[in-house]
């Protein structure tokens, strides 16, 4: 059976949805970060699949940059979590409610 581009689109859509739901539903900050990573990686998967199908390198180049940015983002995010944990002793987003929201 031939694996066509639609399969990749479907897989990346599923991954993106899981990630988006994770951000919206889960309350643990670490899990939320993982979900964001999943969303970014679903976009990466799509880019690589399209790049392969179109025989074009631009999409793959973008993926490298996205991975770098994602790493930087996680570093900042974890630092923020540490700061929050020091003052609140929790990383539950639901408990972080000093601001009205």
């Amino acid at each position: 059976m031939q694996v066509t581009i639609e399969w990749y689109i479907a897989l990346s859509t599923i991954l993106f949805t899981i990630g988006a739901l994770g951000v919206l539903v889960r309350r643990n900050a670490i899990i939320i970060f993982m979900s964001v990573e999943l969303m970014l990686n679903s976009a990466n998967l799509l880019l690589v699949a399209f790049a392969q199908q179109l025989a074009d390198a631009h999409g793959q180049v973008l993926v490298f940059f996205v991975m770098t940015v994602a790493a930087a983002e996680v570093a900042i995010g974890l630092a923020l979590i540490v700061v929050i944990f020091r003052t609140k002793n929790t990383i539950d987003i639901g408990e972080i409610n000093l601001l009205k929201g």
Partner: peptide, 25 residues
């Protein structure tokens, strides 16, 4: 404020990147 901006911001930019990847496709 930092962590709120981070969570929403990272979410929004992931959504946008997904849109851009379709545009590329």
């Amino acid at each position: 404020a930092g962590i709120k901006y981070f969570v929403y911001g990272a979410f929004a930019s992931a959504v946008m990147l997904y849109g851009l990847s379709f545009l590329y496709g």
